[in-house]
Design a binder for these strands. Structure first.
Lengths: 200, 200
DNA sequence: GTCTATAGGCCGATAGAC
DNA sequence: GTCTATCGGCCTATAGAC
């Protein structure tokens, strides 16, 4: 048991409530709806407390982003370690949860420089994680990647997963089953055959 | 020569200036920076004129979107008619110009319902255009698409082009050359061979 | 840590003179 | 069509009492 200061506990509770409210608003109404007043209202607090705990709104966004990022990175690392890293990466990247927030933070980054720098860093880290997971998958299963190098596969998964999320956000799903079927086939393709992965 | 009313000319000139300013701000500072005051300032007008000519901001966004959409659709239709539709579609979708605005409108759509409906419509129309262009390419060159059906190719091009644009916007370009090389190979793949396009 | 109060700013939109 | 004037609203952030 770590030493639990009652004051520290309360402090964390309030901070968590604020971050939760921030995330919820961002998810449901978009980042532009994240204002100190709205966040406070949803958390059952006064808006000034948002500033007391997080300073400027920039800092609030930053900390909310970091918390989300940390969660996801940990989740993805576990997926990489699991038995079928490639499939798990695809499942996570094409799933609803999380990917919608990524798009929202990406939009917000246009107007908040700090957030942009933050995103670039984690984006790079995630890309490297994806690639290493895919490399591992290829090695473990003795697959000759052919044209579908780990870098290409990583980009494809990110691009397709992100676009699926964007279009779902619009309420548009034409061709989704088709592209998902394609990815399934790509992920399930026979192993140890250097012919089928080559484009020329 | 069509009848040119001097008043009508002036009216169009002002409207065009406002729409140009709107687009410029959206491109450089993001959609959130598009306010009646800022638009007017950049166009050398008073903010009230924005309302006079376009009514609400929703309507301004809508008309700016439509103008942009019309331009692009015409451009793409010409590309489809051209000699190498598939390659042209890829070039347009992966190019800088235009694709950044798409992302911005997509973000804006989260908070402006009218814009969302508008985007869904044109998104669907563009998807159909892509697919028909790719079908034509396959037929003209006697290509057996295999797993890379027109729907899959269209989605891939949109997803990869859009992601490239997003990442470029962040100042992030790791792996871009690699994925572009992959697409080049995919577009150049030998024709009339039903083997190399199959995943299994 | 949480409250009240408040400064100071930008926003959308309208009314009415010219 | 374009101007001046202006209302009402929501925002970030800070100061100071408790």
């Amino acid at each position: 048991m770590k030493p639990v200061d009652r004051r520290e506990q309360d402090r964390l509770k309030t901070r968590t409530a604020i971050l939760d409210a921030t995330e919820e608003i961002m998810r449901k109404e978009g980042y532009a709806a994240v204002t100190s007043r709205r966040v406070a209202e949803r958390a059952g607090l006064k808006s000034q407390l948002v500033h007391y705990h997080f300073g400027t709104m920039d800092e609030l966004f930053q900390e909310a982003y970091r918390r989300n990022d940390k969660r996801f990175f940990d989740k993805y690392v576990k997926a990489i370690i699991a038995r079928e890293p490639l499939r798990k990466i695809w499942e996570l990247s094409s799933s609803h949860e999380g990917m919608d927030l990524v798009a929202e933070y990406l939009s917000a980054a246009n107007h908040r420089k700090i957030l942009r720098d933050e995103i670039v860093q984690t984006w790079s880290r995630f890309r490297a994680l994806y690639i290493s997971g895919i490399e591992k998958h290829y090695e473990d299963n003795n697959i000759d990647a052919g044209d579908f190098t780990p870098g290409v596969m990583a980009f494809l998964i990110i691009a397709i997963g992100g676009t699926l999320a964007n279009e779902r956000g619009l309420g548009f799903s034409e061709g989704h089953e088709e592209i998902i079927g394609f990815m399934e086939a790509l992920l399930n393709k026979p192993r140890g055959n250097d012919r089928i992965n080559r484009l020329s």
